[in-house]
């Protein structure tokens, strides 16, 4: 038996899942995936699986977006370092 709440949350899952795929900027995507994780947790809860819902909140809505954000920060930093290196090299070559 599927109730109205379950149907509604399944539709939300579909919409927010599409939102994750359609967002192009990684930073936006990490926020979108966090929201998607929250909706998934709501879905698990409404299907009478509170244990799974809790795991989903901590992993899908907190841990995963956090790791993506931190990895993005690391990548940006390395990029900046490399650019600065390149500038210094160029400066030396001019001298």
């Amino acid at each position: 038996m599927i109730g109205w709440l379950q149907t509604g949350v399944l539709l939300l899952v579909a919409v927010s899942g599409a939102g994750v795929v359609l967002s192009r900027d990684p930073l936006e995507q990490s926020v979108a995936v966090s929201f998607y994780g929250l909706i998934l947790a709501l879905m698990f809860f409404l299907h009478q699986a509170p244990d799974v819902a809790l795991s989903q909140i901590v992993v899908g809505a907190v841990a995963l977006p956090l790791m993506i954000l931190l990895a993005l920060a690391k990548v940006h930093q390395q990029q900046e370092d490399r650019e600065r290196e390149d500038q210094r090299e160029a400066g030396k070559a001019r001298k």
Partner: peptide
């Protein structure tokens, strides 16, 4: 009740963050 070491552990780890 629902929850346990896995879920609580992650919650605890957000405190230093």
């Amino acid at each position: 009740s629902p929850g346990g070491g896995f879920q609580g552990g992650v919650i605890l780890a957000t405190a230093p963050l």
